[in-house]
Nucleic acid binder design. Structure first.
Length: 567
DNA sequence: GATTATAGCGCG
DNA sequence: AAAGCGCGCTATAATC
């Protein structure tokens, strides 16, 4: 049953009963599903009050899925004109400063101020939420695959809960260790506006080698000009292109670029801005990517370089369990295509290794780059070279991605396993196609149209795989989240993990096919087992009895940087 | 002077 | 091996 939670203009919350159940009754073990306009509007406050929500229905996220899904096009939800729910912008989950944990009451919060800043506050009242929920349930019920869509919406909403919880808990971050890494690579912290010593010295070497005393190594045109003047046939300053070149300036230039990246993206300024009280609290944007993957905002949460992951350190008495779904995308493709041969190749072992063992390819690297090419639409290099062998060995999988590509090239939409549908190409895409077919179209217009056609085909080709993999990952994280809570709490001396996770294993990081659990050390083995079991459960939710497995490599360590590879 | 666009690189 | 998918962020260039 759904319990709709909405805000009144007074700022007081009201729980509207849709199934004859009051809030007090809903707290009993009937497993209510809290229905609200936006998880980010309600859940951070509940978490601060120490309340964990078991499951919810996020109307904003569900609306977006159902408006776009090819399975609900006949519904009144999909056929209505765009309205307030379409205009609703995501609310920043951490938009308000965290008040001290003084045991505030359940609904002692005022989300309306943030809501009105985010969009139409009237959308968020109880009646509007009830009407919208009605329309959504109708769209699901009358869709081509209600069960799948129901699973997608539940997983998306569970993801929203997990994201809010991860922001609440924060990623344990050792600023001292981060500083050590920076000093080790860059030298001492420079004055504001100055370059670190190590970078300044490399810049001098580059200027020297290129005989360009005033060269600014941060200016791309400047660097490109200087390289050209020296007689080097480079067309850009990309690292991989420079690596092909043999010249004394290249070594220090590449080293400079590497350090410059670390300094500007994850240096001391980043540390000051994003790490407080030993925690990095990024904002996760659930469904922020068209394919259904999460995005993030602020701090580059999904791009933490390997170099600084050693600064991610568990609290005393706690450890990280780091889990990585091995070769997730090709396994998902095998499941989507019911490709038993590919599923066989990966059963109980590295999928790419399995492709070598069965003689499909001659090295793991070829298997990997070949499959990536098949899923991304690669047309050159060694990726394209192994493609014919893959097509012979795995016709079902290759046909599925080829078909998705052809569909996109026609300008049609593709849909993931659970019903997330790709956007249509924009007006300018169609214009370019029409233009290229007119009588006076020149060769330029035609080749531009062809390139654009293929590009959209690569997008839809990848959409079905990346999008279904994102659905697998959402189900995984939802399962993990539930199982971790069921493990209960342990006593940890000096515990500084915030409520409601004090003493409890909890998610702290999620990166597409990888997750990190912060857990009291004694529970680490149990956590690892649950993470694996959750992966298996997710596979069954998506693919039922089809025998594709989802092995997870698991490592345990006090440092994120050290925890990988251990399993 | 304030803005938007681009190149490049980090992650999967 | 260096190309094909999806992002966010930074510094600089380009544009208003």
């Amino acid at each position: 049953m759904h319990v709709v939670v909405a805000a009144r203009s007074s700022g007081q919350a009201t729980a509207v009963d849709v199934g004859g159940v009051t809030v007090a009754e809903a707290a009993r073990p009937t497993r209510p599903r809290w229905t609200w306009a936006d998880t980010n509007l309600w859940y951070p406050g509940l978490l601060r009050a120490g309340v964990r929500v078991d499951r919810c229905h996020d109307l904003r996220l569900a609306h977006r899925v159902l408006r776009a899904s090819a399975w609900t096009t006949g519904s009144r939800l999909a056929q209505a004109f765009a309205g307030a729910w379409d205009a609703l912008q995501p609310v920043p989950a951490g938009g308000t400063p965290t008040p001290p944990d003084d045991g505030g009451t359940l609904f002692d919060l005022d989300p309306t101020s943030r809501a009105s800043a985010a969009g139409d506050a009237a959308t968020l009242d109880g009646r509007a939420c009830r009407v919208e929920l009605d329309a959504q349930l109708d769209a699901v019920a009358t869709s081509r695959a209600p069960g799948r869509l129901r699973l997608l919406l539940a997983a998306e909403s569970a993801g929203a809960l997990a994201a809010a919880e991860m922001q609440r808990a924060g990623l344990p971050w050792d600023a001292g260790r981060h500083d050590e890494v920076l000093r080790d690579q860059l030298g001492p912290r420079p004055a504001v506006g100055a370059r670190p010593d190590r970078m300044e010295r490399l810049a001098a070497e580059v200027r020297d080698a290129l005989d360009a005393p005033t060269l600014n190594p941060d200016s791309l045109p400047d660097v490109l000009r200087a390289l050209r003047r020296t007689g080097l046939a480079v067309t850009s300053t990309r690292s991989w292109e420079l690596q092909q070149v043999d010249h004394p300036a290249i070594g220090p230039l590449l080293a400079y670029k590497k350090l410059s990246r670390l300094f500007s993206a994850n240096g001391w300024a980043w540390l000051d801005a994003w790490v407080q009280d030993g925690r990095f609290r990024p904002e996760y944007v659930v469904g922020g990517v068209v394919t259904g993957r999460w995005a993030s905002s602020g701090g580059g949460a999904l791009q933490i370089p390997q170099q600084v992951r050693t600064a991610v350190r568990a609290d005393p008495g706690w450890v990280f369990v780091v889990a990585d779904a091995a070769q997730l995308e090709p396994r998902v493709l095998a499941g989507l295509a019911h490709d038993e041969r590919m599923a066989d190749a990966g059963r109980g072992k590295d999928l790419y290794r399995g492709m070598v063992d069965t003689g499909v390819v001659d090295s793991r690297a070829h298997g990997k780059v070949g499959m990536l090419g098949a899923m991304y639409g690669g047309t050159t290099g060694s990726s394209a070279a192994v493609l014919p062998r893959l097509a012979r060995a795995f016709p079902a999988s290759l046909a599925l991605v080829e078909d998705a590509a052809r569909t996109g090239e026609r300008g049609d939409v593709v849909t993931t396993l659970l019903g997330r549908t790709s956007p249509r190409p924009g007006a300018s895409w169609h214009e370019t196609q029409v233009l290229a077919q007119s009588d006076d179209a020149d060769a330029g217009a035609e080749s531009k149209a062809r390139a654009q056609t293929r590009a959209w085909g690569r997008f839809t080709r990848n959409f079905v795989v990346q999008g279904t993999a994102a659905e697998w990952a959402l189900c995984w994280i939802a399962e993990v989240r539930r199982r971790l809570w069921d493990l209960g709490a342990a006593e940890v001396p000096g515990d500084r993990v915030p409520t409601p996770f004090t003493g409890r294993p909890h998610l702290v990081y999620f990166l597409h096919d990888e997750l990190v659990v912060h857990t009291p050390a004694p529970l680490a083995d149990a956590v690892a087992a649950e993470v694996r079991a959750a992966a298996a459960a997710s596979g069954r939710l998506l693919f039922g009895d089809f025998p594709v497995d989802f092995p997870v490599s698991v490592g345990t360590d006090r440092s994120y940087g050290e925890a990988k590879d251990a399993g």
